[in-house]
Simulated scan of single mutants.
Amino acid sequence: MTLDTNLTEYILAYSDGDSVALDVIIEALYDQLKLAAAKQLNKLNPESISANDLVHEVYLKFSANQSFNANSRMHFMAIAATAMRQLIIDQLKAKKRQKRGGDLYATTLSDKKMPLNDNALEIISVNEALSKLRAIDPKLAQTVECRYFAGYTEQETAEALNVNVRTVRRYWSRSKRWLLLELSNE
């Protein structure tokens, strides 16, 4: 049996309610989760939260979640990326409520970095628009989560969504057009 096969068995066991399996999964994927967290934290000031802290927060979130449903390593990583995005958005909203900006950075829809205090509203708006997009086309919303929030490459997104790279390009193009239209209407 390969590592992926063993890991898939633990992921399926965790999906079936075996909470001990989560510890094995996190330990096996810890480095990958830290890398995914670091990509997402590219949007934040490193002083606000570390990649380790974000992975630990995801672990706590998964530990408390009773309705987890992943079926592979990449599917688990995609769900983890979504959880990281939610934690980051919560932190951004909290900072916005506290009327603090700081030297935070975010990736924009044009893949350029800019200070978060100039871009916090965009990230929060994209997150809210993502809910609308999910109701229209879940695959497009998952593509945005992987590409925009998780910083996944086209290949990583294709693996997470179980589609080919050309499909990811098409989804990403459609998603960006929809988001730009939706955000311009706000």
Rank of each mutant, 00 (worst) to 15 (best):
M1K: 06
M1G: 15
M1Q: 09
T8F: 03
V20C: 12
L22M: 04
I25M: 01
E27S: 13
Y30S: 11
L33E: 06
L35K: 12
A38I: 00
N42L: 08
K43L: 06
N45K: 05
N45Y: 01
S48R: 08
I49C: 13
S50N: 09
A51I: 01
H56F: 10
Y59F: 09
A64K: 13
A64D: 15
N65R: 09
N65I: 00
Q66F: 00
Q66K: 05
N69M: 12
N71P: 00
M77V: 08
M77Q: 10
T82G: 14
A83M: 11
R85Q: 14
I89A: 09
D90V: 01
Q98W: 01
R100I: 14
G102D: 12
D103C: 08
T107H: 08
S110R: 03
S110T: 08
P115V: 01
L116Q: 02
L116M: 12
N117W: 07
E122Y: 08
I123M: 12
I124Q: 02
A129N: 04
K132P: 00
K132Q: 13
R134T: 14
A135T: 10
I136S: 12
L140V: 07
R147M: 11
G151F: 02
T157M: 01
W172M: 03
R177T: 11
S184P: 01
S184Q: 04
E186A: 04
